[in-house]
Amino acid sequence: MRYLTAVLLALALVFSAPTCTGEDYPILYDYVTDETGVLYGGYDINELCMYVYDNSGAEMAVLVVNTTQPYDIFTFAYETFQQNGLGQEGEDNGLLLVLSTDENLWRVEVGYGLHGILPDSRVGTLARELLVPQIEVGDYYTGVYDFINNLGGIILDEYDGEPPEDPYPIGFIPLTFWQLVIVAGIVIFLSVITKGRILFFLPYLIGKGGGGKNWGGGKSGGGGVGGRWK
């Protein structure tokens, strides 16, 4: 039984997610990923992005980091977008806003599918009107909220799309129905033979499992715009 417990512990460790992908690009766990705390959790911004997704299928995300080094912000934003797969596969309707607070740099990476309604000049103008003036005075939350709200409004008004059917019956567990049945069967079986000890490891498996949010698998073509504040 000790061996079995050790195996379960090892499994839990394996399922524990790393904080970064292979090349140190962040995993986006939700619509807002704030590594600096300047967005105070960003719950309202998260809600905005979720609303846009629910009504258009477009996936917007915000990432705030202290630094993008050793990469320049373009490479960092592009690779983070690609590796997380923002937007639906084939639709490429993702958008990523990256703020780097140490270097005072911002960048918006726009997927192919949204580039028609959000060309670089339009995004750049909005960023200079709504985002930059606020973050220059340290009000990151208002700047990002207003900017994302505006971009989201454009997507809802001008982009014709809808979210794909969710293949997962339980939203936060990326398993299909039959995969869930198999996992449930294994858990019940292990519960019986370990006299319930497996249940101690469930929080590890559910809470830390996976590689971030289940994004749609879209791509960026490198389109987007960026700049510096202050």
């Binding site: 373009f74 592009y78 060309p119 670089d120 389109g223």
Partner: peptide, 16 residues
């Protein structure tokens, strides 16, 4: 500025 954004965006897209 809008034109410069488009040029910079095009250059990035060319890079990719």
């Amino acid at each position: 500025l809008g034109l410069m954004d488009n040029i910079a965006g095009t250059e990035n897209t060319i890079t990719v």
